[in-house]
């Protein structure tokens, strides 16, 4: 069973994918509710006054719902400013990852070159070294970044990118594991498609852009989501390279309510809910337009 022969023989469109399935619906419903359980409790605590967080019998519905936690998170947590910052940083990371990581992954999968495997292994192996080791050299590089923050061309004289959003995004611009993901994804796509295009005289870039990118929309969606959440979730790095409230990111803002000796359940959960909402929006938008959208694009053999 080679994919080529299979692709050639099946032309009849079976409507199996759109048939109503009560079983699937039920199982999905149960699984989703189970998975959502901790989040539902989170939502519940976000609306509870402090005294209601711990009760003898846990109650999912707040007896005396309040918006105060959200107000606290928003005002004393600096969540608003932090969300703008994180959005900017995440946006840049998404853009660069979706372009260069996908491009590199494609090249590793479809345009093998001498030493490619070695370069590939070297690149993804950098993801396997714990952050504790790379934190200080990366910090020094951020401080020594040339021509910004009062630095000269050699990175001397000022504080470089420190305490700026540029510093926050620096390690997230291209994630090695995204390149790996892209490579694996393109490995799963048929070589014949590209060959056909090349025979027609398309250059490599046109082949990539016209043939493979349209097929890679689920990949781009996943890379986008993962790049976004990598920045959104990062705590240690922004903590180390920023110091002012102007450059604060969402995780730093949230941590105010989570710190040891001073845990504030209500505001922490309210802040988390606020911080999660835009990501959920990004996801729903993405999965509609990319993952689901692919079936409309179809695979033309």
């Amino acid at each position: 069973m080679t994919s080529a022969s299979m692709a050639g023989s099946g032309r009849i469109r079976l409507r199996w994918a759109t048939r109503r399935r009560p079983g699937t619906f039920l199982v999905l419903l149960i699984a989703t509710v189970l998975v959502m359980m901790p989040f539902l409790w989170m939502l519940s605590i976000a609306f509870k006054p402090e005294a209601e967080v711990f009760t003898d019998v846990p109650q999912i519905l707040p007896a005396d719902p309040t918006f105060e936690n959200f107000a606290t998170a928003w005002t004393s947590g600096n969540v608003g400013r932090a969300m703008i910052n994180s959005t900017i940083v995440a946006g840049v990371a998404v853009l660069v990852n979706c372009t260069f990581a996908v491009l590199a992954g494609y090249a590793f999968a479809k345009l093998p070159f001498r030493g490619g495997t070695l370069v590939f292994l070297l690149m993804i192996s950098t993801a396997m070294v714990p952050v504790a080791v790379t934190l200080i050299p990366l910090f020094l590089m951020t401080k020594g970044f040339p021509l910004v923050g009062g630095n000269d061309l050699l990175g001397q004289g000022g504080t470089g990118l420190l305490d700026s959003l540029g510093a926050v995004v620096l390690p997230h611009l291209i994630a090695p594991l995204n390149i790996f993901l892209a490579r694996q994804y393109f490995l799963g796509l048929d070589d014949d498609l590209g060959e056909a295009a090349r025979i027609d005289g398309a250059n490599e870039l046109t082949t990539f852009w016209r043939i493979y990118v349209p097929l890679a929309r689920p990949l781009v969606a996943v890379v986008a989501i993962f790049s976004f959440t990598a920045v959104w979730d990062d705590f240690l790095w922004p903590l180390v390279v920023t110091s002012s409230l102007e450059a604060e990111t969402v995780q730093l803002a949230l941590s105010k309510f989570l710190t040891g000796g001073n845990v504030m359940y209500g505001p922490a959960m309210a802040g988390a809910v606020l911080v999660v909402l835009p990501v959920v929006a990004v996801f729903i938008f993405n999965q509609r337009s990319f993952i689901a959208g692919l079936s409309e694009g179809g695979v033309k053999g």
Binding site: V92, G149, L170, S244, E246, A247
Partner: peptide, 13 residues
């Protein structure tokens, strides 16, 4: 964009 972020944060300071 990167530089913009850099100077953005920097200029705020």
């Amino acid at each position: 964009v990167l530089a913009g972020c850099g100077t953005g944060g920097g200029s705020a300071d």
